[in-house]
Amino acid sequence: MLVEKQKELMISMKNRKKYLIGIFQDEDMILNAVKSVCKAGISIFDVFSPYAVHGLDEAMGIKRSRLPIVTFLAGLTGGLLAMLLQLWVFNIDWPIIVGGKPFNAVPAFIPIAFELTVLVGGLVTVAAFLFRSRLGPGATPKLFDSEVTNKNFVLAIEQKDASLDINKVKEMLITLGATEVKEKEV
């Protein structure tokens, strides 16, 4: 389901679409609203909030992100490459006597290998995050409400099939505590 949503989202980037949005003022309400709307079988396009509302991902059925796997693989690569580079340099490319130490001075190679594990792991994870979330310099935000980065919690429902009774949903949102319900093309 998530993948489909994503696909739709991608299409929506190209052509503007109509959404029904409900604006809420606090996180308990939006959590409640999301749960109720899902229960009603209406698929939610997305919820926008000024901060991370906990429990929302579960309510919306968002699967746990796979970023940690990315971090693990990237970190492993970084660390291994660093260790291999150091071993290669001191054993093969340029074996030179330094301080009487053996060429395979592995303990001395650990600090740099560790640092590169962290560096590569961190940077790749950030890159993966930006890529996955389509964030980056120049990316245009999908703003349903100008106050979403300030105080408003926004629940957006895409009006894609006619079967959706807009008025009924509107009513439902108002009952759930929405201070404002409107239709918007984004």
Partner: peptide, 20 residues
């Protein structure tokens, strides 16, 4: 970076914060 407060981004963002 085009931040819009999407719940999916927030979700990943939280994970990213924890990882970092």
């Amino acid at each position: 970076l085009g931040w819009d407060g999407s719940s999916r981004t927030w979700h990943r963002y939280e994970i990213l914060s924890l990882i970092l």
